[in-house]
Design a protein around this nucleic acid. Structure first.
Length: 121
RNA sequence: UUAACAGACUGGGUGACCGCCGGCGUAUGAAUGUAUACGCUGGAGGAAAGUCCGGGCUCCAUAGAACAUGAUGCCGGGUAACUCCCGGGGACGAAAGUCACAGAGAGUGCCGCAGAAAAUUACCGCCCGCAAGGGUAAGGGUGAAAAGGCGAGGUAAGAGCUCACCGCCCAUCUGGUAACAGGUGGGGCAAGGUAAACCUCAUCAGGAGCAAAGCCAAGCAGCAGAUGGGUUGUUCGCCCCUUAUAUCUGCGGGUAGGCUGCUAGAGUGGAUUGGUAACAAUUCACCCAGAUAGAUGGUCACCAUCUACAGAACCCGGCUUACAAGUCUGUUUUUAUG
RNA sequence: UGGCCGAUAGUGUAAUGGUAGCACAGCAGAUUCUGGUUCUGCUUGUGAGGGUUCAAAUCCUUCUCGGCCAG
């Protein structure tokens, strides 16, 4: 499977995002919170949102880029079936790319989007 | 040499792989929109920031005038324009340098406490006089500030009352485009300060802002009020639309999808010419982000070295603020708490 | 993105350029057998830097932080 992450696989509409926030379930760890809700499509859609007080514009962009890169690399492990996912980042300790990647993998496993078997690999 | 100050500049580089956004081309499906694949190509800054100024652009039907309000404030130049820049002058400072630097002799206001008195002053003083009263402002203390300064003459005591020097004002001459500088002559000195208090004078400004504005698609439900209404704080003038299926105001309902605006520009780089300079003109070459929940990231290698401040959102010119490390130029003196 | 406001004790809120007040809270004392009420006293201050002025919370300016409006 090709490891890309295009516009189609992003969550863009305001109404869709509101649906995730109002109807979705949540899992969280330090500094990160993940919300998800099923959709009717064949693929997942995801959005990464640093909160308003997360540093300055450069730091907010960097977090989004790291998260998007981690999501892209690990995309093929995900279970099929559509889910809309929103990931929120809160200010606190600064993490590098690899720490962010571990964090996100942990959260996706906890939410049942990645099966535990594939995470063990 | 070091330090300080001022100014200008750079703001990690090269290669490989995987990915993101735009443009062009080809192919396939599709049907006039676009989707997918491949190839080529472009992809954040000196401050993109703060939004403190100035303009372009768009709309307010079009173009005006006066007042109000606001801004600026030595002179000359530059510029599309400017709270900007360059050059010159003045004041202050030992110097490099710094300075919102018009007017207090048009008017109004304010100047706490202290002090006799904070604006048409007289407490203690000094002098004349028996006293009543008068003449004075040298000395005293207060305060941020107290009626030109210092010296000599003069006088009852004093006083620009007189004189020299300095300061101030007026007239005039010379140099300079001008601000201003210098010289000559005269006045005897106007009765403090504050304009970053109101104000006066001169100059300049219509308002709103790309969520402006226009088009397409989808969708919905109207109701109430005002009569003339229509760009702004007010008024005038001019003109435009319309006498109700009109215009304006308020409340409510619906949609928040796409396209244009959207990047070839007061553009960037080089050369020549003019100018002290800011800058301008001519010519040659180049095309250099255009996202729309918002594109630049990850891994590896080498060199350098621990890499700061920080992310375009209609576009430019400035100012201000943040900044690791490094380069260059100039200036300074009492060799230094600058 | 564009436009517009504000910042005063721990909290809320005053102050013509001239000694920064008031209320609640806090602390100490008095009253009471003890606590409360009440009374007395004290402490805690102009968001940061620079300028104008004899003197700035106030005037000017540059930052910082917070808030509001516009689809």
């Amino acid at each position: 499977m090709r490891k890309n992450h295009t516009k189609r696989e992003r969550l863009k509409r305001k109404s869709d995002i509101n649906r995730v926030f109002h109807e979705g379930k949540a899992v969280s760890c330090t500094g990160v919170r993940l919300r998800f809700v099923p959709n009717n499509l064949q693929y997942n859609r995801v959005v990464f949102i640093p909160v308003k007080k997360f540093g300055n514009a450069v730091e907010r962009n960097l977090v989004k880029r790291h998260a998007r890169e981690a999501y892209r690399q690990e995309k093929d492990r995900f279970t099929c079936g559509g889910k809309d996912i929103a990931v929120l980042f809160y200010p606190g300790k600064k993490y590098d790319f690899w720490e962010r990647r571990e964090q996100l993998l942990y959260l996706f496993t906890k939410a049942g989007i990645i099966s535990k078997k594939s995470f063990a690999d």
